[in-house]
C-alpha cells in the first residue's frame, strides 16, 4: 500500500476518451513524474486524482482508502493537493490572502499563521510582496506562490502540473531546486507532470511515460532516461523536443 495507488483509471470528456487503463503509484515522500507530449492526457489524470474530474472506471486509493469520485475538498483534507497548470493564482487577492486560502481546508488557526511565516521564509519573494495583488507578480514569482499556496494545506502528496510552463530557464532552475527540497523541507511526496523532460529527469526518482492517454513505460528514472522509448517520444518526427516549453495540454 503506497501513499497513492491508481488502478485501471479511464477518463473521458463526454464521448471523447482521454485516459485508458492507467495504473501507477507514488510512495511516501517519493518524487514521481509523468512525462509525455502535448495532449497525452497527463493533466486530465491529475484532475481525476484531485477530484475535479470523475473517472469513468477504476479506483483511486490514498493510503488504502478509496477516494474515487470524491470532490476536491475531500481530497484536499486527505492531503492530496493540486498546484494547477498555469498557476491559477487569484490575481485580485493579495499574496498573503492567496496563501491563507491554500490553508482553507485546515482548522488549526495558529499553525496556519506559523506556516505563512514559514512560506515567506522559504520563498523570500512572498515576504517582500506580501500585500501586493497576486496579479502583480511575474510568472516565476507566481509559480512560487502557487507552490507555496499548495504547501499551505500541509499536503502529503503535492500534484504539480507543468510548473515550468512559460518560465525562463533561470526560473526553471529555481523551481527545480524547490521541488527537489520539498520532501526535506515539507515532508511531501510529489507527482510531477511535465513536458520539460530535463527538469523532470533531474528531480524525480521514478517516472511514467504517457502517450495517447495510456502509460507506455514505468521505471526508475535512471532506466527511463536511457530508454529507447524516451528517445522516440521526444525525438520522433513532429513531437515536441526534449526541454522545449510547449503549449498547454
Amino acid at each position: 500500500m503506497s501513499l497513492l495507488d491508481i488502478a485501471h483509471i479511464d477518463t473521458a470528456y463526454g464521448a471523447i476518451s482521454v485516459n485508458r487503463d492507467v495504473s501507477l503509484s507514488v510512495g511516501e515522500g517519493e518524487i514521481a513524474t509523468i512525462l509525455g507530449p502535448n495532449g497525452a492526457g497527463k493533466t486530465t489524470l491529475l484532475r481525476a486524482i484531485c477530484g475535479v474530474v470523475k473517472p469513468k472506471r477504476g479506483a483511486i486509493l490514498v493510503s488504502g482508502r478509496d477516494m474515487t469520485r470524491l470532490p476536491p475538498d475531500k481530497l484536499a483534507k486527505a492531503g492530496v493537493v493540486m498546484v494547477p497548470e498555469g498557476r491559477r493564482i487569484f490575481a485580485d487577492l493579495t499574496v498573503r490572502e492567496n496563501l491563507r486560502l491554500g490553508a482553507y481546508a485546515r482548522e488549526d488557526r495558529e499553525a496556519i499563521e506559523a506556516d505563512i511565516r514559514r512560506m515567506e521564509y522559504y520563498f523570500p519573494v512572498l515576504a517582500q510582496k506580501r500585500d501586493q495583488k497576486g496579479g502583480a507578480l511575474s510568472g516565476g514569482q507566481q509559480q512560487m506562490l502557487a507552490i507555496a499556496r499548495g504547501l499551505m494545506a500541509r499536503p502529503r502528496l503535492l500534484l504539480l502540473d507543468e510548473p515550468s510552463l512559460g518560465l525562463s530557464p533561470l526560473m526553471v532552475k529555481e523551481v527545480q531546486s524547490v521541488i527537489a527540497d520539498l520532501r526535506k523541507n515539507f515532508g511531501a511526496a510529489v507527482l510531477l507532470v511535465e513536458q520539460n523532460a530535463s527538469l523532470a529527469l533531474a528531480v524525480a526518482e521514478r517516472g511514467y511515460l504517457m502517450q495517447s492517454g495510456r502509460i507506455v513505460a514505468a521505471n526508475a528514472i535512471a532506466e527511463l532516461r536511457d530508454s529507447r522509448l524516451m528517445r522516440d517520444l521526444y525525438l520522433g518526427a513532429g513531437k515536441s523536443r526534449l526541454g522545449e516549453a510547449a503549449a498547454p495540454n
Binding site: P72, D73, A76, K77, P84, F90
Partner: peptide
Amino acid sequence: SRYGLALRASVADQETAALMGVP
C-alpha cells in the same frame, strides 16, 4: 473573514477555489 476570502476566490476562479477545498 475567512468566508469572505473564500467567497472572493470562488467568484474569481471557481475551479481553483474548489481545489483549495472551498465548497
